[in-house]
Deep mutational scan, measured.
Amino acid sequence: DYYKILGIPSGANEDEIKKAYRKMALKYHPDKNKEPNAEEKFKEIAEAYDVLSDPKKRGLYD
């Protein structure tokens, strides 16, 4: 669930989505986080943001 990945409610607005994305992206960026699964988690976060930040894609997802 993209909302769960970003840690936001399904009714989140654009600003909340952007803030959550930035926070999670910094936390899991492969250059900052050396955990083995950090890169995979970072890709999931980027995919979630891509879908939820685009009103058309978000509409299809919801």
Rank of each mutant, 00 (worst) to 15 (best):
P36M: 14
A48S: 05
I5H: 01
A48D: 00
K23E: 15
F42I: 13
Y2H: 09
P55K: 03
H29M: 12
S53I: 10
I8Q: 02
K18V: 13
E16V: 09
P9C: 06
P30L: 10
Y28H: 07
G59P: 08
A38Q: 11
K4P: 00
E39I: 09
L52P: 01
D31M: 10
I8S: 01
K19H: 07
Y28M: 10
K56N: 06
E40N: 15
K23V: 15
I5N: 09
Y3Q: 03
V51C: 12
A46P: 00
D50M: 12
G59Y: 02
Y3K: 00
I17G: 01
N37Y: 06
A20L: 00
K56P: 02
N13Y: 03
K4H: 05
D54E: 00
L6W: 00
N37A: 14
Y3L: 00
K34G: 10
Y21A: 08
G59Q: 08
P30T: 14
L60D: 14
K4F: 07
K56I: 08
E39Q: 13
K19L: 15
Y49E: 02
S10Y: 10
D31P: 11
K18I: 05
H29V: 06
K41C: 07
Y28V: 05
G7F: 01
I8D: 00
Y28Q: 05
P55Q: 08
G7W: 00
A12D: 03
E14G: 05
L60F: 07
I8A: 07
E35C: 08
E40P: 10
R22G: 15
K18N: 07
A25I: 15
G59H: 05
E40T: 11
I5W: 05
S10N: 08
K18A: 14
A12T: 07
K32S: 04
A12G: 04
P9A: 08
E16G: 03
Y49W: 12
K18W: 13
Y28T: 02
D62N: 06
F42D: 04
Y49A: 07
L6P: 01
A46V: 03
V51M: 05
E39G: 12
P30Q: 10
K34F: 02
K34R: 10
S53K: 04
L6C: 00
E16S: 08
E47Q: 05
S10I: 07
P55A: 09
R22K: 13
L6F: 04
K56Y: 08
S53R: 04
K57P: 03
K34N: 15
L60A: 12
N33S: 15
Y28E: 09
P9T: 08
I5R: 04
P36D: 09
M24Y: 10
K23P: 02
K57A: 07
K32F: 02
D62C: 13
E16D: 08
A46Y: 00
I45A: 11
